[in-house]
Amino acid sequence: MSLLPSINRFIRHIQRFKGWFGGAAALCLITGMYLGLITSPPDYYQGEIVRIMYVHVPLAHTALFGYTVLFVGSLWYLWKRDPLIDNMCHAAAGMSAAFTAVALVTGSIWAKPTWNTWWTWDPKLVSFAVLLMILAGYLMLRTMVEDPEQEGRYAAVLAIVGGLDLPIIYFAAEWWRTLHQPLSISLRGVSISGDILLPLSIMSIGFTLLFTYMLMIRTQMLYLVNLFDAKKGRLLSQVHLSKVGQ
């Protein structure tokens, strides 16, 4: 039980090192792009176009990772009602939406020269676009409710319900008929050769670190905005009270 009350303190503590996350993310992404664009070989079947994989796949993974953070954070919020966790969930949703949108666009750019279409109503693609819809709904809800306690509660429930989409996206190409290729890394083994796997893994780590860094900045930003509003509100209410008191 000793872990539970300390999560808030842990977040505040790790926030102090967020610069290190940003630096590590930049290092990984620069190394990954150097390896991916310059030293890695073209694919036997796709040629140079395979280099798009080094951004598309990590972005999509990170978007799913971001929603997982949101899902777990929402459960935690409903249990503990910690406003800092609520800020973190709000931040995770925004960042996850950004990564989802970018992953969709890069996927579309990859699909045209390989599949011969920008978009098709394939289960994997549709369920991923639905993730963006869910996050848009979530972010809209957060702007609509006035009471912060109520806002956090409703948003958390919405995020948990929307979490149903996560396994659907991940396993879509295994469970249903799709144009999208199945998972390259699964129980079957790794179907990517070493030269291509190396930049892919480094970019994956880099984008996950970048997400973590962005999550930290945004959590801090939302926390400060709330703090500022609360202080301003308190001042205003004092002015109000003193006026009433006259």
């Binding site: 664009l37 040629g47 970018v102 890069t106 750019i109 020269p113």
Partner: peptide, 24 residues
Amino acid sequence: VLVTNYGFVVSAYLVAMIPLILLV
């Protein structure tokens, strides 16, 4: 060799990196 399609590769990298970096 296959047609290189560098236009697609470059635009995918730019579309990915520029919005994220501006956001940060």
